[in-house]
Amino acid sequence: MTKTVLVLVESVNEYLPILEDSGFRLILAPTPAMRAEAVATRGGEIDAVLTRGPLGLTAEEIGALPGVGIICVIGAGYEQVDLLAAEARGITVTNGAGVNAPSVADHAMALLLALVRDIPQADASVRRGEWRKVTRPSFANKRIGILGLGSVGMAIARRASGFDMQVNYHSRSPRQDVDFHYCATPLALATESDFLIVATPGGGATRHLIDKAAIDALGPQGFVVNIARASVIDTEAMIDALQHGRLAGAALDVFDDEPQVPDALKSLNNVVLTPHVAGLSPEASRDTVQMVANNLLAFYAGKPVLTPVHS
């Protein structure tokens, strides 16, 4: 019997035929209105849900989908999926951990380069007919701190090593398979870094790991890049530091209330902003949807899923 997947994501339409070719029927609901209508009127048809971290799936929605046995999350983050409600129903949850790591790491380095070397402002000055020359820091022998040394963090570390940077990191525990320098706390990491890249999942456990103290430790010559989740950084403290010269610059691909971006950030010239696109590339999108298909096929064949998520 064909299984029906409710698709809440909006960014991988080109690759959804991978799921159809694997034998699944799709209900597309990429807007809040379509989502609410699908859950309310077609809830009994739905066997699986495809979502992403910020879109999530609420306990109320899970309760309205009596046939759902599996929730597949695109990307590594799953912060808005109610894992407790899923667990109470015996629903399997999977994510796409590691699949888009190369794309995210590329974007993180692109943001860091653009920020530190002041590329957006230089570009704008040339377009205005100016010939503005500003001396900016180089990368060799700088200390880069990576918060979260999972698949994305490791991919960033490898790229940073190619720029002759010293790699420091903090994660829940030291990794035994790397030679990078481990810092015991996020504050220690910030203290020992010139550039800080946030690459850890969102959620309550990582909320405001980069707080005012860490931002101040990074200091007026320090730069921060966030390609993970906005909640990991205290946004208000970061904006205040950027406004008052206590932080040299920030490059952000994620925001607290997407797609809303604080006007204060948009008004600053020491900030680079992108619309949560770090994980988007043709390769990453294709591989992410293929991972979803593989997890669904394994689940319905009674086999272990490839990337399970536990509460």
Rank of each mutant, 00 (worst) to 15 (best):
V254S: 11
P259M: 08
D216K: 12
D263W: 06
F223L: 02
M238A: 11
Q243K: 11
I239V: 13
I233H: 04
T235K: 03
L196E: 04
A264L: 07
A228Y: 06
E236T: 13
V232P: 01
A264C: 08
A248L: 07
T200R: 01
V224E: 01
M238Q: 08
G204I: 04
T206H: 06
R207S: 12
D194K: 02
S231W: 02
A251W: 02
R246Q: 12
A250K: 05
T206N: 14
R229D: 08
T235N: 10
H208W: 07
G204W: 03
D240Q: 10
T206G: 05
G204D: 12
L265T: 12
A205C: 07
A251D: 08
Q260T: 13
A205I: 11
L196Q: 07
A251H: 03
P201C: 09
V254Y: 05
K266A: 14
I210Y: 00
A241L: 11
L196T: 04
T206D: 11
T200A: 15
V225M: 10
Q221K: 13
D253M: 09
L265P: 10
R207P: 04
S193A: 07
F223G: 00
L218I: 01
D263E: 15
A250E: 08
F255L: 10
V224N: 03
F223V: 02
P262Q: 14
T191K: 00
A241T: 04
G202Q: 03
T235Q: 15
G245D: 12
H244P: 08
D253A: 09
V232A: 07
D263F: 09
D253W: 05
L218K: 01
A237S: 15
R229H: 08
I197Y: 01
G222M: 03
